[in-house]
Amino acid sequence: MIETRELTKQFKDVRAVDGIDLTVARGELVALLGPNGAGKSTTLRMLTTLIPPTSGSARVAGFDVARKQREVRLRIGYIGQGNGAGHSQRGRDELISQGRAYGLRVPAARKRADELIDSLGLGEVANRTVSTLSGGQRRRLDIAMGLIHAPELLFLDEPSTGLDPQNRANLQEHILRLRAEHGTTIVLTTHYLDEADSMAERVVVIDHGRIIADDTPQQLKAKHVGDRVILGFDSEQAAARVPDGTRDGTVVRITSDDGPRLAARLASLGPVSIEVVRPTLDDVFLTLTGRSLREDVAAPAPALLEA
């Protein structure tokens, strides 16, 4: 569905995307994860024909993004960071206009708009002016607009940024249902770790415009961090019976590919407490780059202080 070779985007003084090789097969759900400014959105904008690559190439839905833009555009859906619907328009009107933009005739566009209004629960607000809708309603309308032509490949750029937890959960459910029902290939960018973790079966970690890891969330965690098993004993002698790990008084910490299994095995040594800590994708990012993704969210403040 997607195949890029050495895909690169150079802005005036920054190399936003630096030689990305990415292959996505039909039906996959891939999350591009990385801090702000890592090059995720720029990558997406190249894949969706919004900006041309500086060098390298990308084939999307069977066509080259630089030479066959219209062919690509006909086949992909894209839900950007902003609001797709014009603020002075009504939601239903915008859906019909979108359908017409993809070559549907008016009756077909109207019918498709009705279907999407139904499935995204927009019935009560579809005839209202977009500027009066709440953030969550606008986001659902954006999704409906991106799906008007039932694309086989859907891109979402930071789909849940700015939404409250309930709306985020709603949105994730819609995306997962779309995939289950239609087998849509989905590529999304996010800097929410739990989102990448819970939704995608493949996470591509991007930093400074390069792919630094690409695997399932489970494999990423197992390969780069591993589980930690923390055993508490009632005496130091008892703690000393544990063959490996690092000992700190009566507490022993051990890293393992399979924490629960190790914990079960070590239970025979009679610890008073057993704790298995599973790594997060943030731990993966921390191991790979020495920086935390979480810190990045609050990064501007310390930067200001230093200045």
Binding site: G80, A85, S88, A101
Partner: peptide, 21 residues
């Protein structure tokens, strides 16, 4: 100014990604 506003909100980008010439 209408277009300028649509550039800022993202709705112009939405049009650019459609097959409209």
């Amino acid at each position: 100014s209408n277009l300028l506003f649509e550039i800022q909100t993202g709705s112009h980008e939405r049009m650019l990604v459609t097959p409209l010439r």
